[in-house]
């Protein structure tokens, strides 16, 4: 095909393009809504949620998960815009492990060392490792569908960031069900679940977000 012919052809396709930012926002809303429905249908809040809200440890879990969610989400649109991918804002993500590390240190100081093991292992680590990835699934699928309209410079990285945002949604929901509030538990098990989701997101990105 002659390039001039192709240009004629392309110039006639004047239907407005999908706006990636809008598509991503919609995907976040849809994904979060789907996970919420799933969460409240199957798990729901923990029985003592009214008391728990007043404790610092319980509140801290949401500080961590919501920071993860908001920082990762704010990076999404740059990830799928050519020439914007690797911005310095990525480093904001480090805030989440720093928060966790700080809380772990405080916890180690205020808790007798005899309790460290109990707090770390908690009561339901396996539950955490299963529920967070499962609740990440729908936001992840919606986000990937929206990102397919984009053109990521680095598809693996874009997939990983989408996975982080999804895990942020999942972990926020799960935190309101999970009976373990110690930062020791959160730092180990929430992180392990999130990293598993991120690894899947990275490889899924390489596979599905190429353009």
């Amino acid at each position: 095909m002659r390039t001039d012919d192709l240009i004629n052809l392309i110039a006639q396709d004047t239907r407005p393009p999908v706006e990636v930012s809008k598509a991503l926002l919609l995907a976040l809303v849809m994904g979060a809504a789907t996970s919420c429905v799933l969460f409240f249908a199957v798990l729901g809040f923990r029985p003592d949620v009214a008391d728990a809200i007043e404790t610092g440890r319980f509140a801290f879990k949401f500080l961590v998960t919501l920071s993860l969610f908001s920082i990762a989400s704010s990076l999404l649109s740059a990830m799928v815009r050519p020439g914007q991918g690797a911005t310095a804002r990525r480093w904001l993500l480090l805030l989440v492990p720093i928060l966790l590390l700080g809380a772990v240190i405080v916890e180690l100081i205020v808790t007798p060392s005899g309790l460290w093991g109990v707090r770390l292992i908690g009561s339901n680590a396996v539950h955490c490792l299963i529920v967070i990835p499962l609740l990440s699934f729908f936001p992840g699928v919606f986000l990937f569908r929206a990102m397919r309209n984009g053109a990521p410079d680095n598809p693996g990285q874009a997939g990983a960031i989408a996975a982080l945002a999804s895990a942020g949604i999942a972990a926020t929901l799960y935190a309101s069900n999970c009976p373990d509030d110690s930062p020791l538990f959160v730092a180990i098990w929430y992180s392990a679940a999130t990293l598993a989701v991120v690894a899947i997101g990275y490889f899924a990105g390489l596979r599905f977000l190429r353009w």
Partner: peptide, 28 residues
């Protein structure tokens, strides 16, 4: 060249209209 033109076309929704066009095209 043709592949690039098609990519520019199909991905033009990723151009932020508040930003300059040149860097976006170069990245594509």
């Amino acid at each position: 060249v043709q592949e690039v033109l098609l990519a520019i076309h199909l991905k033009r929704g990723t151009w932020d209209i508040a930003r300059p066009l040149g860097p976006w095209i170069s990245a594509i």
